[in-house]
Design a protein around this nucleic acid. Structure first.
Lengths: 255, 255
DNA sequence: TAATATTGTATCAAAATGATACAATGCTTG
DNA sequence: CAAGCATTGTATCATTTTGATACAATATTA
């Protein structure tokens, strides 16, 4: 057997029982907020990259590990946001379906078929640096527009995605981590587009610009670009030094 | 043996392994934000009321059950806020200490001595309605001022309390649940005192009043009191009907 | 009855936000 | 190469929110 489950069949002894981690990986590209989903081998089902917690790992470490092993993403913003534990998450049914589609039969007492509690983590990544297909073992990763998710999503992963998005919206005003969704340099328009997409809400250009510049955490780069038949916008960069000053003088927290 | 552990020694089969729930129960009384701690039988250790998840229960149900069985509190505001899972939470050491203090020896392979992940819930209760000693089985419950917690707190429960408090602060501006910390009727001063205590921050009386009344979710009662040598304040009441209207027109969420 | 402490509200200044306008500019097109 | 055009950066004014102070009203105490 190959695909998703190769990864999951450690010795049951090496992992914490009944607990798993699912990662909602956000990226932003061409005005779309995207989530990285994986296709479960030999099925039409999509789901979140997930995994288990090794006995020696902390939860955060385990989440980092899962992220790294399944997508090659390292050192990114990653935060726990909720735990999902309905008894009827119906792991067993979905698992059985997937296994059958792969011609594998799990013994009825296999630990994968028992009830799991899943800890949700979300990650904010720079889309331009991630190549989803490159490092995922034997399964395909797809960036899906969060406003247009596939119908067939496994387990309760749709719910987990929605809750992650909600947490992301809540955090926007309190932390500066949203810069992790942007490339190194960006225009003010792109940044505004990020906010509008996450919050599903429009801002007036002039006021958004005033507000962002007023925060004093952006570094304006002299460069401009050749984009269209109009005045060229400045490029900006998140200025960590200024942000530190800012964080000390306000309630905003650093990522 | 009696005390805390009587409750914990279900059949291991009836509960989800490796997962527990700890409840941070907030109350407010005489200008103090309080947390309900329990004294672990025959020790000087304090800790949070906690328990496990039965196989058929959802996480929220389990938390409600734990709250009810250990404090008699039912139908109160209860919300999950974080999961704690450091591998070095050192359950085994603390458990062993408590068991020895009670003259009990756990077999080294007992499930209680293995690693646990604990889901944190916080509850907001009306202090005037809770009598902590009445329903807790065989252990004493104490309301502790959150600014003056006891030194000897078991496990990582101090960390859990701090994180719960942080979550409470974060939620103050977004949800109306803080009324669950107040008695049925209250004066504006008492409400202000709640905010000041939770946020550890002073407000100007006049402005706080303007803001709260401006929300349009308070019902002013004709009654007043005989309290001191001064003008009598109005009593107020949280008006659920108005709050619903308010919630529909803003980003505030209902409890 | 006067003194006193606290309440409810008004008022003004300062800051933040919403809305509109306009000059500047880099590209396109004739 | 000049005119046109779309978009950007910023200024400006109105409105709302917040910060700070003042003051009349009033329930108790002395």
């Amino acid at each position: 057997m190959n695909g998703r489950y190769a990864d999951f069949l450690y010795q049951e002894q090496e992992i914490l029982p009944a607990v798993s981690i699912d990662c909602v990986i956000f990226g932003f590209h061409e005005g779309q907020l995207k989530v990285l989903l994986v296709n479960f081998g030999n099925t039409q089902l999509y789901g979140l990259p997930g995994g288990f917690i090794k006995n020696h790992e902390s939860l955060d470490q385990a989440a980092q590990q899962i992220l790294y092993r399944r997508t090659g993403i390292a050192n990114t913003y990653l935060e726990q946001f909720y735990v999902f534990g309905e008894p009827n998450r119906v792991y067993s049914d979905t698992h059985k379906f997937i296994m059958e589609s792969n011609g594998v039969e799990l013994p009825p007492e296999h630990f994968l078929l028992r009830r799991f509690v899943s800890i949700g983590y979300y990650a904010l990544v720079d889309f331009t640096k991630i190549h989803p297909n490159s490092q995922i073992e034997n399964e395909a990763g797809y960036w899906c527009d969060i406003y247009d998710l596939p119908k067939a999503i496994a387990f309760d992963h749709e719910r987990i995605i929605q809750k992650a998005w909600e947490s992301l919206r809540m955090m926007l005003d309190h932390k500066l981590a949203f810069f992790d969704l942007m490339p190194e340099t960006f225009t003010m328009n792109e940044l505004q587009s990020l906010f509008e997409t996450i919050l599903n809400k429009k801002f007036l250009r002039a006021n958004f610009q005033r507000k962002m510049l007023g925060l004093g955490i952006l570094q304006r780069l002299d460069k401009k670009w050749g984009g269209g038949a109009h005045k060229a916008p400045y490029l900006y960069k998140f200025d960590e030094a200024k942000a530190r000053v800012y964080a000390n003088s306000t309630t905003w927290e650093q990522p």
